[in-house]
């Protein structure tokens, strides 16, 4: 178990290093930020001063090492637009984002998992078909379309709810529903197939053939085993709590991390983009790590197992 844990930790570290390296490589490939920020018609002395101020005149490997150590020490640079620390700019947006994504996650779990289990237990029934059609629809309707449709109906036509902004909890209702429905569809679909796979296993048939009540077969044998793959997708959802609302925040003018990212990309504010990229990757990697460890607890076979 300890070995399993160390291995996963090592792997997470490698992945995180790759993300940092990736961010650096794209930064280098993006060309000279001096030209981009100052404009190509700026006087050469000004551009030179800018390059020196940002350390752009040093050899690449020096830049890489200093970049790496800066990232490790939590210094993610300053916004090239307003000069504030990128990390401050980003972290002050996190509560707003979580205010949308946490309730949405709860909504996904509350709708998605029971719907998936119900559909699997009543395979090919009308309810199952309904759940599946809704699940496919939920997956294929992009969040911006769903969000705008909700605005059109509930804000424009009925006038029940505000269409955007962050003034009160009522402003959060439509974005949370938009986020929740799509995720619930994915989760329902996934839970259903995980459940169906488990229900087809010989040990389930054995348990029910030897007279165990169907209720107990489901709750003791099927659910715990179906939980294993489902945990992965939930882990992915938790990992994307910060990043999952990029589009929806833009639709509803919600001042969270996602909207900051979109404006930063449009303005090519590289420090902010990098900061968000690293933060999202770190969240995601941590969530994956936790999922792996949960796997180890849920699935005894994996405890001493090798990576591949």
């Amino acid at each position: 178990m300890l070995r399993f844990f160390t291995f996963r930790l090592l792997r997470a570290a490698v992945t995180l290093t790759m993300v940092v390296t990736f961010a650096f490589l794209v930064l280098i490939a993006s060309g000279d930020p001096a030209d981009i920020i100052m404009g190509s018609d700026a006087p050469p002395e000004a551009i030179e001063a800018f390059r020196q101020a940002w350390g752009l005149d040093r050899p690449i490997w020096v830049q890489y090492l200093s970049y790496f150590s800066a990232v490790l020490s939590g210094d993610l640079g300053r916004s090239m637009r307003d000069g504030r620390d990128a990390i401050v700019l980003v972290t002050e947006r996190i509560p707003a984002t979580l205010a949308l994504t946490l309730p949405a996650l709860a909504l996904k779990l509350v709708i998605g998992i029971p719907a998936g289990i119900y559909a699997a237990l009543h395979r090919n029934s009308l309810a199952d078909r309904m759940v599946m059609v809704l699940a496919v629809a939920g997956f294929t309707i992009p969040s911006f379309v769903l969000g705008l449709l909700l605005v059109l109906v509930f804000a424009v036509q009925l006038g029940w709810l505000p269409s955007g902004g962050q003034e009160s909890w009522r402003h959060a209702i439509l974005p949370v529903i938009t986020l929740g429905i799509g995720g619930a569809a994915v989760l329902a679909r996934f839970t259903r197939s995980a459940m169906l796979e488990v229900l087809g296993q010989p040990y389930i048939r054995t348990a029910s053939a030897k007279g165990v009540a169907w209720r107990d077969v489901v709750s003791r044998h099927a659910l715990p085993n179906a939980a294993i793959p489902t945990v992965t997708i939930i882990g992915f959802m938790v990992g994307s709590l910060l990043a999952g609302a990029v589009v929806v925040e833009s639709v509803f003018s919600w001042p969270g991390v996602g909207r900051l990212l979109v404006t930063a990309v449009a303005n090519r504010d590289l420090a902010v983009v990098q900061c968000i990229l690293l933060l999202v990757a770190a969240t995601m990697i941590t969530a994956n790590l936790v999922v792996d460890l949960l796997y180890g607890l849920l699935d005894p076979r994996l405890r001493g197992a090798r990576s591949h």
Binding site: R3, F7, L10, R306
Partner: peptide, 8 residues
Amino acid sequence: SMRSGLFG
């Protein structure tokens, strides 16, 4: 070579 675990 057969390994039992990464550091085994």
